[in-house]
Amino acid sequence: MWETTIDGRTLHFHLAGINNQNFIMRDEETGSWWQQVTGEAILGPLKGQRLTRVPQDEISFVLWKREQPMGRVLRPDPRAAAAGRYAPADWETGIAKLPVATRIRDRRLDLRELVVGVTVNGHAKAYRMTDVQQQNPIIDTVGGVPLVIVVAVDGHSVRAFSRMVDGKPVDFFAKPEATVLVDTASGSEWDFTGRAIRGPLTGRQLAKIELLRDYWFDWRAYHPDTTIYSAGLHTAFFVAGYRAILVSSTNARSSFIEAKT
């Protein structure tokens, strides 16, 4: 998502082609070609210019609606819909089967593996979607910035936040039944928007960090120096720790139920 005004001129874009499975757009005003994923003009009079990125979110509709009940939603184009041009609900499984045509030969991950990528202070890092889902939340540091990556209950909506609270990094674990993070410093509960909703830090807001859901080959093509997150001890420790809490609380609950019956 990009701002279309550059040097006081508003550009109007058209689909103009494809570059290694990432599309190219052409602006009507100068005819320059722009790479969709980077917002950079790659050819033509504006070559080298960059559009300003607009912070975006890729989340499930139900979550968005809850957060933005007054928002507006793009309607399907009746002609495209009638012609059956729109992707089916399970489009991701279909896309996963499409061939990959790229010169990228970095097989650290499967080329069509779905990743979540973040770039902080020039450092790019990719997280396998399966890791993000299994280890929810991921506690990490990228480009010197401590961050947390969290998945909503729908299993698909992902957000990243800085873990800095009052100038200090905090750790989080997640309550699986809802999308709630708990920080280990104060025990406050934080919702999926990054706001503390219960506990001593209520009302505080974590700073959002931009992320991109992408396929490995595409992320790798535009972030050649990217590192890949590997499930480390830190997260394992938290997962284990939280499981222990869960198990003990479940035990307590079942013994309570036993006592009642």
């Binding site: 998502m1 912070p55 890729e58 989340i59 499930s60 939603v73």
Partner: peptide, 10 residues
């Protein structure tokens, strides 16, 4: 839009 469908939001 289906509840579970992904949207790009701004």
């Amino acid at each position: 839009v289906g509840d579970g469908d992904l949207v790009m939001a701004v």
